[in-house]
Amino acid sequence: MSRISIREAINKTLHEEMARDQSIILIGEDVASKHSGGVYGVTLGLSDKFGTERVIDTPITESAIIGAAGGAALTGLRPVAELMFIDFLGVCLDQLMNQIAKFRYMFGGNVTTPVTIRTMIGAGAGTGPQHSQILYPLLVSIPGIKVVAPSNAYDAKGLLAQAIRDDDPVVFCEHKAIYDEIAEVPDEEFVIPFGEARKVCEGKDITIVAFSRMVLFAEQAAKKLSSEGISVEVIDPRTLSPLDDKSIIESVEKTGKLLIVDEANPYCSMASEVSSVVAEKAFHALKAPIRKITSPHTPVPASPTLETFYVPSLSQIEEIVRELSNY
């Protein structure tokens, strides 16, 4: 076991997987940079170790990056492409939505497209309206893609290894505000299967389902509220598509109360999806209305002051949990 950050866990996994499988290439903007290893240093050292034939810097050309990764995956490689910020989905969505996601289905099951797209999500770094969005709900709604969002270093390692080894296209969402979060991670290789939620902490009064960075907030809230005598169970689905609705339903059947915390904009979000799943499948277990905390239906503001209002907060979570507890 080692105590490492999410950034280190991703870097280590990329090293291990590339050493294990020669068909893996990395392709993206600045991924081979010897000095910075991308914007946040996640790919540092990989081009030294594996060479620039396998760790490929490209021009600023997202459609070509994602499209070429898809074409390479169709023809025998196992590319890991980097879409620097998920906000850049706007310039390459066709290659993901109409091409990569649909190859297997529209070619009658005769092909696999084992491509992983690593991308940064989320607010909290003052990066403004076009570098701070969550956007994963857009992708979750597209059949043919799997979507993953780890909240800690252990999950980042196991889920990225699974994403790379998976024969389906996977979008791996890294929240830029939690790269430095440290956790105990086994030194050996391991994978975490998709579609299996993690029970972050056990509780009996209220269930919080939280995603990505919001899992950290939910965990903090649970600790604080336990001193007030409120027992909170926190569920981190870890994979958004497929979603482990079974674990969510089991928890709600135990607690009868549900709060969902999702940094995505509110409409058609993971919060609304989980809410719908529970309303449909665990309605009779509910002892209170389902509550949701999301960012508002606004772009992400650049102002650090406004951004603080934008992102769901610890105090909002505590407040709603107390309300649910008293319901």
Binding site: E53, G71, A72, A73, L74
Partner: peptide, 16 residues
């Protein structure tokens, strides 16, 4: 939409 995909296939050929 085809040319980026074809470029990916060419990248496979170059890599292999």
């Amino acid at each position: 939409a085809g040319p980026p995909i074809a470029a990916g296939a060419a990248l496979t050929a170059k890599t292999l």
